[in-house]
């Protein structure tokens, strides 16, 4: 089960890898990381169909924003789930995301318990 995390902050990788260490070791979870929207699209396009089943994306990134990425992913790969993780949890961002087909909207600082729930639900 491959999940793609998109965030312009590189330390997110280290954080996620530790937080989901158990799931990675034993639960069949595989995490891949992209640090820009473009990089995320590149990863998704590597194989056809893409191996990634779920994308968690930051919104506020230089270049392509998370919301733009959401739209592109949803048009190209409608089957992939996309959830947003943003420090800006305002209604404007929220509504835009949901309207564009986002599954969930998580706010920063990330509540890893609810995130874990979302991921384990997917794993089972």
């Amino acid at each position: 089960m491959k999940i793609l995390i998109v965030d312009d902050e590189r330390d997110v990788e280290m954080l996620f890898r530790q937080k989901f260490r158990k799931e990675i070791k034993t639960g069949g979870l595989e995490l891949v990381f992209a640090f820009s929207g473009q990089q995320a699209l590149d990863i998704l396009s590597e194989t056809d169909p893409p191996q990634v089943v779920y994308v968690f994306s930051d919104i506020n990134m230089p270049g392509m924003t998370g919301l733009e990425l959401l739209e592109k992913v949803k048009t190209k790969f409608p089957n992939i789930n996309v959830s947003m993780i943003s420090a800006y949890g305002d209604t404007e961002n929220y509504n835009k995301a949901i309207k564009s087909g986002a599954k969930e909207f998580f706010t920063k600082p990330i509540d890893f318990d609810s995130l874990r729930k979302e991921i384990t639900a997917l794993l089972n």
Partner: peptide
């Protein structure tokens, strides 16, 4: 605020991680 929030989140996250570790 955002620029401060981001590193602070990391500080909290990694502290929490260390606690678990």
């Amino acid at each position: 605020a955002h620029e401060i929030q981001n590193p602070l989140n990391f500080v909290n996250n990694f502290s929490e991680l260390n606690h678990e570790l």
